[in-house]
């Protein structure tokens, strides 16, 4: 199984230029970047992929122990960078993947030269002196919601959703397929995401880093953005005039121009 097939890797955009890897977070798949993609494609080669277990990745490659820690997801990212032999790439990670990017940059410093964290949170659960915005019970509630909603997932649809590389149009038509995930896999990703604590890892960041936060985001509130900004030395923090946790969908122009401005100025 090649990494390209395993992670449903898609390379698009400019033929030359600094490569940008767009990494989806917990919930949906690489389609999350569909509105930002054309805005970056002119100047940069773009790499998109699905984590194993998400989108149209190869579900047979999913192993619970590997994907029960963020390191497993970071390995996916590093392996994609290696497969494409990327150098000095910019990793744009949404949500939990901002932290995956941190781990990957530490593991493969020659391949990853800058980070853009979109709505990052290194720790979702409140703790003494730290406010992540959630309690452990809230996360249990999320797991309940996951159990109540299969969003187009069913075992019979799985082979179609996870794709048939010969007939990609099949999956394209399926309602909710962008977020359709095997419930068992989604549960593991949810637990890994929302129970992780990556605050220490922020100190390892040495590459230029842009933090993009939304003005109003219930998942990553502004005080978390401020925390990340303070923890990553020399990082740049930009607050987008957007509501919600997915500015790449709700404010794609603002998101793309922030990334472009960062890349053309301080990302070296």
């Amino acid at each position: 199984m090649s990494i390209r097939r395993r992670n449903n890797v898609r390379v698009t955009g400019a033929a030359t230029g600094r490569p940008v890897v767009l990494v989806h977070g917990f919930g949906c798949d690489q389609n999350m970047w569909r509105l930002v993609e054309p805005l970056l494609a002119e100047d940069h080669p773009l790499v998109l992929f699905d984590y194993v277990g998400a989108g149209r990745s190869d579900l047979s490659a999913w192993q619970e122990d590997r994907y029960s820690s963020l390191d497993g997801y970071a390995r996916d990212l590093v392996e994609v960078c290696e497969e494409l032999d990327l150098r000095d790439a910019v990793v744009v990670g949404h949500s939990v993947s901002a932290m995956t990017g941190v781990l990957a940059a530490a593991a493969a410093p020659e391949r990853i030269g800058a980070l853009v964290m979109v709505c990052p949170s290194p720790r979702y659960i409140d703790e003494d002196g730290y406010r992540g915005g959630f309690s452990a019970e809230d996360i249990d509630e999320l797991l309940e919601s996951l159990e109540s909603n299969y969003l187009g997932w069913s075992a019979t649809m799985a082979p179609v959703i996870m794709g048939n590389p010969d007939r990609p149009e099949l999956g394209e038509e399926l309602t909710n397929s962008f977020c359709a995930t095997d419930p068992d896999i989604a549960r593991v990703f949810a637990r890994t995401t929302f129970l992780s604590d990556s605050r220490k890892d922020l100190e390892t960041v040495t590459v230029p880093t842009l933090i993009l936060e939304c003005d109003q985001d219930v998942i990553a509130p502004r005080e978390v953005g401020a925390y990340v900004h303070a923890a990553v030395e020399g990082s740049e923090l930009l607050t987008l005039d957007a509501v919600g946790h997915c500015p790449q969908l709700s404010a794609p122009e603002a998101t793309a121009s922030a990334i472009r401005a960062f890349l053309s100025s301080g990302a070296r």
Binding site: I139, F178, C179, G244, C246, S250
Partner: peptide, 10 residues
């Protein structure tokens, strides 16, 4: 949480 990670983007 579910709304933000699944519902709204979809």
């Amino acid at each position: 949480l579910y709304h933000e990670t699944h519902f709204a983007p979809l």
